[in-house]
Design a protein around this nucleic acid. Structure first.
Lengths: 247, 247
DNA sequence: CGCTTCCTTGATTTATGTCAACGTGCGTGG
DNA sequence: CCACGCACGTTGACATAAATCAAGGAAGCG
């Protein structure tokens, strides 16, 4: 089962029909190595992709040649969902790890809306989730200091990864280099290193060449105000589902 | 004609039918004074609103009681569009100016998708625009210094306002206090004042009690890398429109 | 083996925050 | 009408989080 199926199962929105439409939509699967550029900034968008496995980033390049990571893309996330609605990509997308992707022409999305209102709503819901993640990122950049930002980011990513179906064991180590964290949180890699060192001396996390490991999520959460308690049931409200069935 | 109609006219997506559905959707209009809280953070969302006139902000409150403005809402923007899809609001919404709003139960949105695929796509497109604005905000916070952030923000807001139908004259003065700019850009109001003073001494803008006036947009644009040249035609690509008609 | 990428640590600089004081306009209530 | 409080903007002196500059170590890789 793909991560997207996993997320939509939790949503409890898919019926037989919508599941079939989805399966057909995701028929064409490709594999790409880490570092692959899926879009560059400003390029025309021809295909929409769903990340089945692996991580990616959406980013924009700054005037001085640095990158600003806008958002992380995890299994089940869409890439270029709005390709049918906008002429050009507003950001670049690059694979952080090796990945498996489902690809389809972005115009297919319009068909989906007509073929299955349920699946359309589900995709719309995914778009809404994306907005929330962007808001979280704004909150981090605007309201937290360097150390808090790091804690907040890794907690969010861990949670998102588990919602996409990763096991608790798998999701303790995130495939992030310190440099990448810096590009996301607008902290120099030098300062990221300092903050991570301090956090690891306090036993809250651990960094290694293969990524960053969360050792004490609740301590991390309390230092940055991240809400670990409210469970993230990825599920549509009943009112939405019943409405989709046709009143 | 409402600002939303104006934007959707430009999109060239509405047909007779979709226009009728939209008119019915926006039937119930209310007026609210500046300072009104439309949502508080974490409250359940009952109704979706479309801002017809006036400005608002989406914000989150930080641990130390400050506000982080996530996004500005202008005429034609939606408030609580995802109310049907999420149990609770992820942010508060407050009116910056007196405003006129269309209100409808958020579950109506689902009907819209079934009644007019065109209007559904249009609303989805608005959601996509919102994502772009959030990305711009991340870019400002992550990649620009205080003065550049201010320039970049006012340019974006001016452009958005004109896309919503404001005249060039009207859109030169934005209804923003320096304090609000600070809350959006994560700069203290003291430092906002210093930056604005310097910009106004250089003749780039002017601040008054009623808002901020852009005097030299192209100079502002060149100092923060804002792209004024690419025209913002708010319009769907042909491929999307033809697909909506049913292949 | 040399090259690159990533991480680490120290010394110094800088953009921005903090604290404090003051001016101005505006609405409210005596 | 004035007096008062209040929100907003301005400016100065000082403090600080994070950037910058610099150097070096460790691991992967052709």
């Amino acid at each position: 089962m793909t991560a997207l199926h996993h997320r939509l199962e939790n949503l409890r929105i898919l019926d037989r029909d919508a599941g079939d439409v989805l399966t057909r939509l995701l028929a064409r699967v490709v594999e790409r190595p880490a570092g692959t550029l899926l879009y560059t900034e400003g390029c025309p968008v021809e295909s929409t992709r769903i990340l089945l496995q692996g991580w990616a980033i959406r980013y924009r390049t700054t005037a001085d040649g640095e990158r600003q990571v806008l958002n992380f893309l995890l299994p089940g996330d869409s890439i270029g969902l709005y390709g049918a609605l906008f002429e050009r990509s507003s950001a670049g997308v690059e694979l952080v790890t090796d990945a498996r992707l489902a690809e389809f022409p972005c115009t297919r999305l319009m068909d989906v809306f007509r073929e299955s209102a349920r699946l359309g709503a589900a995709l719309c819901w995914i778009g809404g989730m994306d907005e929330r993640f962007l808001e979280q990122q704004i909150f981090r950049l605007g309201a937290l200091n360097a150390t808090e930002r790091i804690a907040h980011l890794v907690l969010e990513l861990q949670r998102r990864w588990m919602n996409a179906g990763a096991s608790a064991a798998e999701a303790t180590t995130l495939p992030l280099s310190q440099r990448l964290i810096g590009e996301a949180l607008s902290i120099t890699h030098v300062h990221v290193s300092r903050c991570c060192r301090r956090l690891s001396r306090r036993g809250l996390l651990e960094t290694a060449s293969d990524g960053i490991t969360l050792l004490d999520p609740s301590a991390l959460a309390s230092m940055c105000g991240f809400d670990l308690k409210t469970p993230t049931i990825e599920r549509l409200p009943k009112k939405a589902v019943s409405r989709l069935l046709g009143d």
